[in-house]
Design a binder for these strands. Structure first.
Length: 127
DNA sequence: AAGATGACGATTG
DNA sequence: CCAATCGCCATCT
């Protein structure tokens, strides 16, 4: 799997305007996740109005690692599992970043996920 | 052009 | 509770 966004490449960004918007929105929402809290792909998808396109959120996150200020480690799946840890520079980086924020993780799963869960729809309101 | 893939999620058996 | 399936939709091969 190659990155679609290659800012350092001669190849231009290969994203349509529509997707660019979607990516930006995802980044913005993720950036709003408070320190020590987490959210899910589905929650973001729902907030963006595409409740059934959580996979696209995951895809957006895949490209987010080239962005700055996007705490991708605060985004886990609906069970609080660190499903995207393998996509970090180091497989353990995601967990370490979360633990550094006081989040307890056991077996790649966030403990008290329901308490730490930050739902953009609920916190920011529906648009 | 067609089928496979995936940082997902909900449902069903 | 675990496994199989389906819906979703941009990308990749």
């Amino acid at each position: 799997m190659k990155n679609t966004i290659k800012p350092l490449s001669t190849k231009p960004v290969k994203l349509s305007e529509k997707n660019k918007d979607f990516f930006d929105l995802v980044y913005q929402v993720v950036r709003l996740v408070p320190y020590g809290r987490v959210t899910s792909y589905g929650a973001i998808a729902k907030y963006l109005g595409s409740a059934r396109s959580s996979r696209m959120v995951g895809w957006a996150m895949n490209a987010s690692h080239v962005q700055k200020g996007v705490p991708a480690h605060r985004v886990v799946n609906r069970n609080g599992e660190l499903t995207g840890k393998m996509h970090f520079s180091s497989p353990d980086e995601m967990q370490q970043l979360l633990e550094a924020e006081g989040i307890v993780i056991v077996d790649d799963t966030v403990i008290d996920f329901d308490k730490l869960f930050w739902d953009p729809v609920k916190e920011l309101g529906f648009e």
